[in-house]
């Protein structure tokens, strides 16, 4: 999917640059025939629209899956608050449990 999207994106960029090239050529042609520039020709507009669509498709498909922004979605749903670590107190019932693990920091 990503490979296809990438190819489409390259194609879109090529379309856009070709559209730019055609516009410049068209303007040069107008200079020779000494006509007023009223708007780009039809095929250039078509190319622009196609190129735009291709680029947009590539931009949406290449970077991967989008993440939800809704607060109530399955991923973003808040399930618990963090422990209030800065107000942590140490004289809890854990004191009564003698740690069976023999732990030591080697210096």
């Amino acid at each position: 999917m990503t490979g296809l999207g990438f190819v489409v994106g390259v194609l879109g960029v090529l379309f856009l640059s070709h559209a730019a090239y055609s516009t410049i050529q068209y303007k040069n042609l107008l200079k020779i025939t000494e006509d007023e520039f009223s708007g780009p020709p039809m095929n250039v507009v078509l190319e622009l629209v196609l190129g735009f669509m291709f680029c947009m498709h590539a931009a949406l498909s290449v970077p991967g899956k989008f993440q939800s922004i809704h607060p109530d979605s399955e991923e973003n749903r808040v399930v618990s608050l963090p422990a209030n670590m800065e107000f942590m107190i140490f004289n809890h019932r854990g004191r009564a449990i003698i740690s069976e693990m023999d732990m030591k920091l080697k210096l």
């Binding site: 399955e74 991923e75 973003n76 749903r77 808040v78 399930v79 618990s80 608050l81 963090p82």
Partner: peptide
Amino acid sequence: MVSKSEEE
């Protein structure tokens, strides 16, 4: 805040 995906 701990979200569902982070918990998983």
